[in-house]
Design a protein around this nucleic acid. Structure first.
Length: 308
DNA sequence: TTTGATGT
């Protein structure tokens, strides 16, 4: 099953190259709509420039530097892409305006982030539209209602238990994508999220990038197509798959990487998460993103449990 | 336990 999926991903790279030039043109003519949400405050970035400077070096925002420090910490090993970046208190994401779901969501997780905390109550949280997104591109709760799909967290609520505010921010709809509930979000995908949390028992720091994929499939005419459902008045995309690329940083600074792709469908309970491991490169090609590109290869010990 | 939707 995995080799077939890898084949599909490999065939994507040709499409990806064609898309690159279009993307470049768009970048040049991009208007000044890029904004960054920092600690609930909306900032305007410089027009026609990548958002990177706004969230790393020259942040026109002061609160003692804590927000900037946290973003640098979460994004220590590089931004996968720079489209419509939003920085929340405990995670960072890039929003896909066309599909009304994230491109990627980045988290930095430690033991402390997932500890039991009586001050944090998930049941008090509400799914909330993010008004920093232009209304044309914003998803609403009504899009999901009656669709049959869950509002699935990309940054999991259970990874952000340091403060009530942190867990509440994971309920922004910018952090959601439509997921099959029974057998996927509530089961197999949840098991993968728990597996990532357990990595904090082994590693001091865990860096986790999560997002959707839209993978091509051969249709009945024998040709390859990317086909996905859209839901609601805002036509929110239902991804065909979801990925996680995870890096564990040991106390000596050495790094291990794991990468997973799971189909957005009911998955048998007995399926081990390890059976969804894929080479990280296949996700990068399919998503059009580069994960952890600031990591020195010499520091990377294992990928998917194998020495590199 | 954590992941959610739905009905009163």
């Amino acid at each position: 099953m995995i080799p077939k999926r890898v084949l599909h991903l490999a065939q994507l790279s040709v499409v990806g190259l064609a898309g690159y030039y279009i993307g470049l043109k768009d970048k040049i003519f991009e208007n000044n709509e890029n904004t960054v949400l920092l600690n609930g405050k909306t900032l305007k970035s410089m027009p026609a420039l990548p958002i990177f400077g706004t969230v790393s070096a020259a942040v026109p925002y002061t609160d003692g530097g804590h927000v900037k420090d946290r973003v640098s910490q979460i994004m220590k090993y590089g931004f996968p892409g720079l489209d419509n970046v939003r920085s929340y208190d405990d995670f960072v994401l890039s929003y896909d305006r066309r599909n009304r779901v994230p491109n990627w969501v980045f988290e930095h997780i430690t033991k402390e982030h997932i500890m039991k905390n009586d001050a944090v109550d998930r049941s008090k949280c509400d799914f909330t539209p993010d008004e920093s997104i232009h209304p044309f591109f914003r998803s609403q709760n009504s899009d999901y209602k009656g669709s049959g799909f869950d509002r699935g967290h990309m940054a999991a609520a259970g990874n952000h238990r340091l403060a009530q505010k942190h867990v509440e921010q994971t309920f922004f709809l910018t952090n959601m994508a439509p997921q099959v509930g029974e057998g996927f979000n509530r089961h197999a995908w949840n098991r993968l999220e728990k597996h990532v949390r357990k990595l904090t028992k082994v590693y001091d720091n865990v860096y986790c990038c999560t997002g959707p994929l839209y993978l091509p499939r051969k249709e009945s005419d024998g040709k390859m197509y990317i086909k996905y459902q859209v839901i609601g008045a805002n036509t929110v995309a239902v991804p065909t798959h979801f990925y996680k690329v995870v890096v564990g940083e040991a106390s000596d600074g050495s790094l291990d990487m794991e990468a997973y792709v799971m189909p957005n469908q009911k998955i048998p309970d007995e399926t081990p998460v390890s059976s969804y491991m894929v080479p990280p490169e296949t996700i990068e090609k399919a998503a059009g993103l580069l994960f952890f590109d600031k990591i020195h290869r010499s520091k990377l010990n294992r990928i998917n449990g194998k020495k590199v």
